[in-house]
Design a protein around this nucleic acid. Structure first.
Ligand SMILES: [Zn+2]
Ligand SMILES: [Zn+2]
Length: 814
DNA sequence: TCGCCCGGTGCG
DNA sequence: CGCACCGGGCGA
């Protein structure tokens, strides 16, 4: 059998060392460690054979977590359950144990090779087998016949196969797979799409969807060794052979400032895999995979990463996304969960960064980085990314708030478009290396997206788009490109994070924030603010059961969200979309496409890592600029990318008692926006955070800036110091700018965070251009935040509190 | 000895 | 079936 060729060297739990990514190929293997050694269960030949017990990979996020949470059921009932803490459960081990069936071994190879890897164990999740081709790695586990019936091909590893439909191997199957995935997602999800176990999200419990995804990935790997190679290479940002890769490279080049440092160049993996031919594009199945894959594309263990890891061990937990209780139908996305380690496999084309974003999802994309500190011990959110259930209801009563999380927790960064890890290594939490992003990156192409169209001028993204398009094309083909374009815009959204802990403080903070936001927004001359405050107009708070979106959109959103990776945050009758990705607590990325906008990037610093951050910023800036200017590349983002990216990161600090303070800063930039509006005063302080590409980047919430600055300082010195700063520091500000097009941001869903929309700022003009302004306004108002009964972790305030201009009244447009 | 992997089982 | 449990026993 093969084996599961996993090269990786094993790491003991204790080992802190990071393994070089080069060695770490996440193939979706069930185990990174050498697998394939068979044991005779019975001791006699007649006994069943089974693989040796797997060990934790030591590389995945959970494996990075050193401490038991003490709160999960496994921790609480350790004696009985005898299971590892849910937050520490290795992702590999979460996969079903590969089982080998003797018979299968002989016969099925052909089958499996094709696509279906057989799977033996029924695990819903598929484990990936090593690539069939790779025999070398095998330890030679002889394929002994096992007592178990084998349905599986003799592939070495039998892996549980995912549902057939999912099987990606064939291109044709791709669509089906995607669809099935989608379906599964839908099915599996509850209203919020979150699986909850006893009221607690169980990270371990991957959704069916996740499983499927895994399966896909795995399968692909198994089936095609080359693929794995490809993947690896992709991660490493190797030279790409596929167009996608090329793109990625180009991008990188463009970003050189940034990319350089990053793993791209250094990644060992790349070197390792370089030589291998890339798998044909067909191998990539569903768009989803790719999305999921993106994150992984990034090399994991880079030297720098290593540092980061060591520095922050704590935060390893990922959160599940919380679904907003108030979420409207579309709002709530189903988050797919976890990034499957295998997922990165999918990431073929993706250079790992967001570089591809433009390509991948020309249409629009939003990235949000949200960083919340996560306390090692208290994983309040969902479990770490991994098997995150598709959705987590943010509304969970006991949802721990960020405050509980330790700030020290990893720092994650998100990857801005076209950039390698956006933040310095430091930013990445130990537990989650940048590459591990299932969550971080998502690529989405919407049917509607003008850019996604083949004729849009964007290069197809490794077939992802194409496949996706196919999928969607049917329905949307009719849509006019122009119409589509107009659907994307950028919003400005200040947001807050509320902590459950100190409500009173929150309120204050909120107010301050609101003010700041308002102020900020106020500067935007052209904008008219539509505002509704939570308390202001209760009447409007009703949640509409039926969102004002057409089925088409809803479906689309579902699909997208179903793929995980991102949440749809906004929509309107115009089909505006925004995607938010978050690792659950460290980063948040919001991506919104706007025809009028160029790609924008924003970045934030982590207080803790100041110096490095700055550097990084510099680089980032450069890269950004490059990108923006992007001339050299084949791909000039400007040419085809019209998206704005907003990223935010929480600056978190851990405090005693686990109280945590986290701040998120978000920057938003829109190329078109006049700089004049950019943040004023405090920018300087935050400057490191800013990215500016040219025209406009800004940090919102200067008001907070001060706080943040202070906080940073303090944090940098000592976490303890942060203690007092709680309130404001805990706020998260996210700013989205709407430029030009109509749209409404109605909801934001961040894993582990309950987000509420409070205010919206829309350009009056834009609104007026809406096909149905009234309806638009109505829609917006209807999505006003729910009563405070359950305070969300995050609250987004749109617009100002009481803008005069705001008075957009539906009537006005009637 | 300890952690917890993993097989098996019963329940929904 | 999938899943929550149990608990044997592997591996360190
Ligand atoms: Zn635990
Ligand atoms: Zn692991």
């Amino acid at each position: 059998m093969a084996q599961f060729n996993m090269p990786l060297h094993v790491q003991t739990p204790a080992e802190e060392e990071y393994i070089m990514e080069s060695h770490y190929h996440d193939n979706g293997m069930t185990s990174p460690h050498e697998m394939g050694t068979w044991m005779d269960d019975q001791g006699d030949g007649g006994g069943k054979f089974r693989l040796k017990r797997r060990r934790r990979c030591g590389q995945c996020g959970p494996c990075q977590v050193k401490e038991n949470c003490g709160k999960c059921q496994y921790c609480l009932r350790k004696d009985i359950l005898k299971q590892a803490c849910i937050y520490r459960k290795c992702v590999y081990l979460r996969k079903p144990v590969p089982r080998f069936r003797p018979e299968a071994a002989g016969s099925s190879s052909s089958n499996s090779s094709v696509g279906g890897g057989g799977m033996v164990g029924g695990g819903s999740g598929a484990t990936s087998a090593g690539s069939s081709s790779s025999n070398s790695t095998n330890k030679g586990s002889p394929q002994k016949p096992s007592t178990t019936p084998s349905t599986v091909p003799n592939h070495h590893n039998s892996q549980p196969t995912p549902s057939p439909s999912l099987h990606p191997s064939s291109s044709s199957s791709v669509a089906a797979a995607a669809q099935s995935a989608e379906q599964s997602c839908q099915l599996s999800q509850n209203h919020f799409g979150l699986p909850i176990n006893n009221g607690v999200m169980d990270p371990l419990r991957a959704s069916a969807l996740d499983q499927h995804r895994s399966a896909l990935f795995d399968a692909s790997c198994m089936l095609d060794p080359a693929r794995s190679a490809y993947l690896s290479s992709a991660r490493g940002l190797e030279s790409g052979r596929s167009p996608a890769l090329d793109l990625g490279r180009n991008t990188n080049t463009a970003d050189s400032g940034f990319g350089t440092n990053s793993s791209m160049t250094t990644s060992p993996a790349s070197s390792v895999t370089k030589d291998r031919p890339l798998p044909p594009r067909e191998q990539f199945r569903s768009p989803m995979e790719q999305w999921g894959a993106m994150p992984y594309a990034f090399p994991r263990a880079n030297p720098w990463a290593h540092h980061a890891l060591q520095a922050n061990t704590a935060a390893a937990y990922g959160f599940q996304s919380g679904a907003n209780p108030y979420a409207n139908a579309f709002g709530s996305s189903c988050r797919l969960g976890m990034p499957d380690p295998a997922s990165h496999l999918a990431a073929p084309a993706q250079p790992s960064f967001h570089h591809n974003m433009p390509f991948a999802r020309p249409d629009f994309s939003a990235h949000a980085n949200f960083r919340a500190a996560a306390p090692p011990m208290q994983p309040t959110m969902t479990p770490p990314f991994y098997p995150p259930p598709p959705h987590i209801p943010s509304s969970l009563p006991n949802f721990p708030s960020f405050s509980q999380l330790p700030s020290s927790a990893g720092h994650h960064s998100t990857y801005p478009m076209a950039h390698p890890p956006m933040y310095p290594a430091n930013f990445y939490s130990s537990f989650r290396p940048p590459n591990e992003s299932h969550i971080y990156h998502a690529q989405v192409s919407t049917p509607e997206s003008p850019f996604s169209r083949s004729d849009s001028g964007f290069p197809p993204f490794l077939g992802i788009e194409s496949s996706f398009d196919k999928d969607n094309k049917n329905r949307d083909s009719e849509e006019d490109e122009d119409d589509l374009k107009k659907k994307f815009s950028i919003f400005r959204i200040p947001c807050f994070k509320h902590t459950n802990c100190d409500l009173s403080c929150e309120d204050d903070a909120s107010l301050d924030f609101s003010k700041a936001a308002a102020e900020y927004l106020h500067r935007q001359k052209d904008m008219v603010d539509l505002t509704w405050l939570r308390d202001k107009d209760p009447g409007n708070m009703l949640l509409k059961t039926t969102p004002a979106i057409d089925d088409d959109l809803q479906q689309h959103m579902k699909r997208i969200s179903g793929r995980g990776e991102c949440d749809v945050i906004s929509i309107d009758d115009f089909k505006m979309h925004a995607f938010i990705r978050s690792d659950g607590f460290n980063n948040l990325e919001i991506e919104i496409d706007s025809p009028s906008m160029e790609a924008a990037f924003s970045k934030t610093l982590n207080p803790v890592e100041d110096a490095s951050c700055r550097l990084e910023n510099q680089q980032l800036n450069n890269s950004t600029i490059c990108e923006k200017g992007g001339g050299d590349n084949d791909i000039d983002s400007r040419d085809y990318t019209e998206s704005a990216l907003l990223t935010g990161k929480t600056l978190g600090a851990t405090h005693r008692q686990g109280e945590k303070i986290g701040c998120v800063e978000t920057l938003l930039e829109s190329s078109r926006r006049s700089t004049s509006h950019t943040c004023s005063s405090d920018c300087a302080q935050v400057s490191p955070n800013q990215i500016l590409n040219g025209d406009c980047v800004r940090v919102l919430g200067e008001t907070t800036a001060e706080t943040l600055a202070d906080q940073r300082q303090e944090e940098s010195r000592s976490q303890e110091n942060c203690h007092g700063s709680r309130t404001l520091s805990e706020d998260m500000v996210v700013c989205l700018v709407q430029e030009g097009e109509e749209g409404t941001l109605t909801e934001l869903e961040v894993p582990g965070v309950h987000v509420q929309l409070q205010e919206v700022s829309l350009d009056h003009h834009i609104i007026s251009t809406s096909s149905d302004p009234r309806d638009l306004l109505r829609f917006i108002s209807q999505h006003a935040p729910p009563p405070a009964s359950s305070s969300p972790d995050l609250v987004f305030h749109f617009g100002r509190e009481s803008p005069d201009d705001l008075e957009l009244d539906p009537e006005d447009f009637s």
